[in-house]
Structure formats: C-alpha cells, structure tokens
Design a protein around this nucleic acid. Sequence first.
DNA 1: ATGCCAAACGCTGTTTGA
Length: 256
Amino acid sequence: MKIATYNVNGIRSRLPRLIEWLEEAKPDVACLQELKCADEIFPEAEIRDAGYGAVWHGQKGFNGVAILAKGCDPEETGRGLPGDPEDAHSRYIEAVVGGVTVGSIYLPNGNPQPGPKFDYKLAWMERLRCHAEGLFAGERPVVLAGDYNVIPQDEDTFSVRAMAGDALTQPESRAAFRALLAQGWTDAIRARHPSGRLYTFWDYQAGAWARDAGFRIDHLLLSPAAADRLADAGVDKAIRGREKASDHVPTWVVLR
DNA sequence: ATGCCAAACGCTGTTTGA
C-alpha cells in the first residue's frame, strides 16, 4: 500500500501535473495540501476519471487539504483540527482507507517570526500533538502525512545560515515536532534513509531548484502498527523539474 | 534591507503567502 503526500500549490493550476503523477506513481492514497480552492470548485470529476475517490476540505484563495484513494472513496473521520473553534483555516482532514487511518496536514508556515503567525503555528502544533496522542492511543495503523513546515534537523536544509531566522528552523518549531515524535511516531523518510539530503521543497525564487537549495518539510509520521509494515519510503524529486511544477514534490511510503 | 516567485482574484494590477 503506497501512501503519498503532495503539496500541489493550487490544485486547479496543477491539475494536469497531478493527474500525470497519479498515473505514473499510482499511489493507493494521496494526501494533498494547498488546494487553494473553495469546496464547490474542487475538480472531483477529473480526479474520479483518473480512478480516485476523494474527500476534501477546501478554502477560497489559500490552504485546503484532500485525501484521494485509488479505486474507492476514503471514509472521512474528521475535518479541521480540533482544539480551537475560532480557527477557520482548512488545514486538516482525516479518513480511513484500507484499514489505515490517514491524516492530511498543512501545518502553518509561521513566517514572519516572531509575530502572530508564528504564535498561530506553535498553537496549531500543540493542537496537533493533542489530536495525535488520541490517534496513537488507538494502537491502529495511522499515517499523518503532509507539509509540516518544519525543517527537523540541520541536515534537512541546504543552508543552516540562510534559514536561521526562518520559522521553519526555530528551536520552538523543532521542539514541537520532536514532542510529536516523542509520542512514538516514526519519521518514515529518516527511518528508511538515516542520513543524506532528501529535500521535498525548493523555492520558486532565487534559482533554488537549479542550485539544489531545498529543504525537507513534507513528512509522513507512522504509528507503531504502521511502522511495523514500512517497506520503503522516498521522494519523487524529478517532479520538481517539470513545467508548471509545484514548489513541493510528492513524498511517499510503501506499507506491507 | 529588499526582492527574488507563484497563484488567486479579478482586471491589465493587487493581495496573499511561502
């Protein structure tokens, strides 16, 4: 069972690239982020024609998350991260597919920091930790996949110095990510590739792709029951070099 | 210290965000 996460950066402008990747990579489950479209204009028909059922939590202009499942409809188990009824951002959706609970996460970027956006990021991470604790306690296979907007360690960025002031590398961001992992989740890419640079994002600006100035911010966290089944994990790096590419690339695991 | 870029929105540029 192949489960992928892909921040598409606008599902309508990315649709040909998304369909192409679905046909090539054939994930059983695809968690999408940054749909940047309202619920009523989600391209359900095109995705169904490509062989995927979907659940989505959209938002006009920015944010928006979805879960796609090959040959079936994901069974939605939640939308919106619990813990703050005032939070109107569409950044979390959860579903069960083939006995695996899957969460699609679009964690706040948090820049500029310090400031209210960074405070929102940290509060969101604490809410995620609380929700993840409940999922973890269920002792079932769970995959929390998405754009975490956290560079976990120095080797996950092209330049520690360039990113020193960025919300993605702040000690508070890293500590919150570690607190989540400390519940017992497995960072699948690092479990499979303990060392080396495996970036998942390259900025559109300043020729970042051409000079391989990327970072690793798209993660798949596995509960023990899912980690026991981990067969492979990887990053579809070449996708970034295509015409009209997202600034993120698909990142995936294979579970036995 | 700033802009580099891209998408959405909606209109020939502005806003938002990464």
